[in-house]
């Protein structure tokens, strides 16, 4: 079972960067994606993200994500083409301006999602939380909440699968081809999922408290996350990316 946000172990430069630096890098790419207005810049940023993914050996995760995102992006393109009425008509109701803005919206969508996922696949969640607490002075409570939420995603999706399997075995037609019917069948399944998740969350809170959660301070973490030379270089790169985004 391939989960897109699972940590992919590795020892590339990207893996070794400080988690905060990686976060900054992802944020810089996203900021640049929003600031950039030319196709060249948007495609360039996307290619840059994919190249980083290729380098860090997580391209399979990114490809898996693209498989989900590209259809969404295409729907967005279609909507833009329908609703943007300015510009010269190309064919039927399609106008050149519609295509132009729609295409950019698509690229932006991909450009925002991919860097975040790239960052999560090369960073252990605990490192991310600890580094954010140490460097960004975020209270541990919030960092823990965030990482726990992410950690529960695969747990709950497994649970959801198990529930769907159980319901299918009872004769609920989850094997139907009709997506709307499937969706309406899924709603009742959310009840058992909700019940399980509330119970799980409560147990996790208890387990964390019984291991001294409330004693934790900024200095608690055993691992330290100092900034190194490569981090400084990466921050410089962030500045360059944002500058390019503004210019192009």
């Amino acid at each position: 079972m391939l989960n897109v946000i699972d940590y992919v172990p590795g020892n590339t430069l990207l893996h070794r960067l400080n988690p905060v630096t990686k976060l900054a890098l992802a944020a810089a790419i996203i900021a640049a994606t929003f600031l950039a207005s030319s196709y060249a810049a948007l495609v360039g940023l996307l290619v840059f993200t994919l190249a980083l993914g290729l380098y860090a050996g997580v391209i399979r995760q990114l490809a898996g994500l693209l498989k989900v995102l590209v259809p969404v992006a295409l729907i967005m393109l279609l909507l833009q083409v329908v609703f943007v009425r300015g510009g010269a008509p190309v064919a039927g109701f399609v106008t050149d301006e519609g295509l132009y803005t729609g295409g950019k919206a698509c690229l932006r969508l991909l450009g925002v999602a991919l860097p975040l996922i790239l960052m999560l696949t090369v960073t252990k969640l605990n490192d991310l939380a600890n580094a954010c607490v140490e460097k960004l002075h975020i209270p541990y409570k919030y960092a823990f909440t965030f990482t726990t939420a992410l950690r529960f995603v695969p747990v709950f999706s497994q649970e959801m699968n198990a529930i769907m399997e159980a319901q299918t075995a009872r004769g609920v037609e989850f094997d139907t081809k009709n997506p709307f019917k499937k969706l309406s069948l899924m709603l009742p399944v959310c009840i058992p999922l909700l019940v399980t998740s509330v119970a799980k969350t409560d147990s996790t809170a208890l387990a964390a408290e019984q291991r001294g959660f409330y004693l934790r301070t900024r200095a608690s973490s055993y691992k330290r996350y100092p900034f190194r030379a490569c981090d400084a270089a990466a921050f410089a790169l962030c500045a360059v990316l944002i500058a390019l985004g503004v210019l192009l």
Binding site: K124, N126, S203, A207, R211, G212, S220
Partner: peptide, 21 residues
């Protein structure tokens, strides 16, 4: 599954030790 607070075994081990100082 609910008992676990981390996603890697080592971090799971560290959690309590770090907290109790």
């Amino acid at each position: 599954d609910a008992q676990m607070v981390a996603s890697v075994v080592e971090d799971e081990m560290l959690f309590g030790l770090e907290n109790f100082g």
